[in-house]
Design a protein around this nucleic acid. Structure first.
Lengths: 201, 201
DNA sequence: TCTCGATGTTGGCAGCGCTCACATGCCGCG
DNA sequence: CGCGGCATGTGAGCGCTGCCAACATCGAGA
């Protein structure tokens, strides 16, 4: 953390920039990230950051990747200690919505970057989605689920989760200023409603 | 449209600016809106826009209000010729998702502005939501619906709709580059899945 | 008709992203 | 061990931006 000497070469400027930018995004938002301000804060000249990132967008991409990794880790952690696939899936939904409510700007950044076809969560989503689809097939074979396209069922579930998270991030009137606990309850209740409706129990 | 004389006073600069900004947002995105560029395009000096809007954000707010009005009108139009309250509600969902898929940047703007507690769609949502809740009460009294909190049922439905629209806007892998028709089908299928699951038929 | 407020203009400030030519110092090779 | 090259830093600067202040113009109302 503490550089012994303010030497000519910073040593870990890249990480320092990403960390500082991440803080700004989390506190204020992506549009508040300024290369020059970051350089000032990090104690380097205003041109130095461009040695590590071709442009501002690339810095935000790097931040996005880092956030995506963090989110990924959180989801893993949240689903670690439940063996039942269904409860595992529910835990993931809750963790997802919770992250959105605790770090709206980071959540927004990660999904906004998906606009540029980078799809940070692509691999992650695929990974999880396959589990859910397997679960749905199981349920259908056991006669517990309606015969709808499993892809559609999975997508509907995903849309509900994403919609809840997004409503919180976008501060929709009915869900703004929720505590983490409230967000957790809401996510559980809503997904339960959908899943019990569909037949997943 | 065609000003007879390029007189000193523009006459309708405010509307011209909003219209031009709306075009830019729709084509490129909100961050591409530049006061000076807009002024140039409109044929006035770069300080003129500030006679009508205190700052750039206010212009974007005005664009947002206009878009919200347009969206409102579209929803009214879409639900005009269906008398059944349920089909009316479904038509609204479809129109909502469709607007998102056709004008992602405008959709984003309108909901992003909600972040600043303006909640352009607040009144609109309330209006619609009351109809849905009345419908849910009806269904519950008739024994068709589970005894869940009607507010929760309404909110879940809203979250699903918003999630679908947002996934399209944010170009999530599984729903990116959908045609309007595909978006329509998807919205219908997903909401039907939820509603039939819940018991709304 | 004269005046005054709404709406336009010019010029300018500070901050931004980004580039270029030059400075520095670390690391590997002879 | 010395040195040369390359990654990484610097400072100056370009053109853009949002926004402000002082002044110009015009139309509507007294």
């Amino acid at each position: 953390m503490a550089d012994p000497l303010p030497s000519y070469h910073h040593g870990s400027l890249r990480e320092a920039l990403v960390a500082a930018a991440l803080r700004v995004v989390d506190d204020v938002g992506p549009e508040a990230v300024s290369m020059r301000a970051l350089a000032r804060e990090t104690g380097v000249s205003s041109a130095a950051p461009f040695r590590h990132f071709p442009d501002r967008g690339a810095l935000l991409d790097a931040v996005g990747e880092r956030v995506a990794d963090d989110l990924h880790a959180r989801l893993d952690e949240a689903t670690a200690d439940c063996d039942d696939a269904l409860t595992q899936f529910r835990a993931m939904t809750v963790a997802y919505v919770r992250f959105a409510s605790e770090h709206p700007a980071l959540f927004e950044l990660v999904h906004r970057r998906a606009i540029d076809q980078r799809g940070f969560l692509g691999a992650l989503d695929d990974d999880r989605r396959l589990k859910l689809i397997a679960l749905i097939y199981e349920g259908q074979n056991a006669g517990l689920l309606p015969d709808a396209d499993p892809e559609l069922i999975a997508l509907t579930n995903e849309a509900l989760t994403y919609g809840l998270a997004r409503m919180i991030v976008d501060r929709h009137p009915r869900v703004s200023a929720l505590t983490s606990e409230d967000a957790r309850k809401l996510a559980l209740a809503a997904t339960h409603l959908l899943q019990s409706g569909i037949g997943l129990t």
